[in-house]
Design a protein around this nucleic acid. Structure first.
Lengths: 157, 157
DNA sequence: GATCAAAGGATGACTTGTCATCTACTCAAC
DNA sequence: GTTGAGTAGATGACAAGTCATCCTTTGATC
């Protein structure tokens, strides 16, 4: 049973503030590295690398939603911006008259192929170089526990 | 010495994807809970609770920057929006002619006093209830290690 | 084959966050 | 007391993310 109280204790506060700050800073660093070395944002990187996982076929919008776990509308807006920049293409799906296939353009493929190794180098230096294997596994466990817990919560989906 | 490679191994991938997804989802949940139960966003909550830490004096903008570790411009824009909504006030600083004091309005104080306990309840259910003390300390250590490491990196500040 | 709920996706309005740039003031050196 | 570098904060333009709403197609039921 968990002790309830109207404030966080020192241990909780340390972890929580550290987590929030770290996660915010890490995102900002990733964004800046990608912008300056590959000319794309972290959001664009996320979409492009999801598409790169299925190199030889386009993906449906809902597959991107499932892969990235973003809100549908967030994905769709991001795709619209990326279509404008020529990184991806929309095509009517052949299987489902309501559906849209999303495909990498040649430029999108070029960009992600260049960005991926640079980004992996970056997050290695940023993150993995100072995190022990034990911490890594604990973070994975913790993340999965929290994610699973989230599904039962109000304000979900 | 760390093994370099152009891709993440399974262990790294599991932790990294879990972390990114979890952190994104947690933010979204916090935002929704605050919006629906207290009528403010997470960004507004962050500013208001920083101000609430010094209940009896206004804070300077740079103090908010130091406390929250946000970019200066992010803080300033957020403050402008919150002034518009009547949650905080700007006053010329008496000590420094360039400076601005930021103070809670009566409404801002009312809102944060109502929001704080609700939010703490929420993150307890969301997060602390499924995270062990050991994991908590590990997360704090990990966050501090990564934050410290970030300071030496390019793309900092 | 008409009806209708649900699925797949798009759009608009609005908030949030970033970068680049700008103004006003301070403080030190001369 | 000028000059000039650095500090404190503000602004504008744009990219991201959220919510509410909309349109079309599908698929089940009658």
């Amino acid at each position: 049973m968990v002790t309830k109280s109207d404030r966080l204790n020192d241990r909780e506060l340390r972890a929580w503030r550290g987590f929030l700050t770290m996660q915010d800073d890490v995102r900002r660093h990733m964004n800046r590295q990608l912008t300056s070395e590959a000319g794309i944002s972290l959001a664009e990187f996320s979409i492009l690398s999801a598409l790169r996982l299925q190199p030889d076929r386009p993906m449906r919008v809902f597959e991107l939603v499932d892969t990235l776990k973003w809100e549908k509308s967030r994905i769709i807006h991001q795709l619209s911006r990326m279509v404008r920049r020529g990184l991806v293409e929309r095509r009517a799906s052949e299987e489902d008259g309501r559906g849209t296939d999303i495909a990498l353009t040649a430029e999108g493929r070029g960009v992600i192929d260049k960005a991926l190794p640079l980004h992996i180098d970056h997050i290695r230096r940023l993150f993995f170089d100072v995190v022990t294997p034990r911490q890594l596994d604990m973070l994975a466990d913790l993340s999965e526990a929290v994610l699973e817990n989230l599904e039962g919560e109000p304000f979900d989906q």
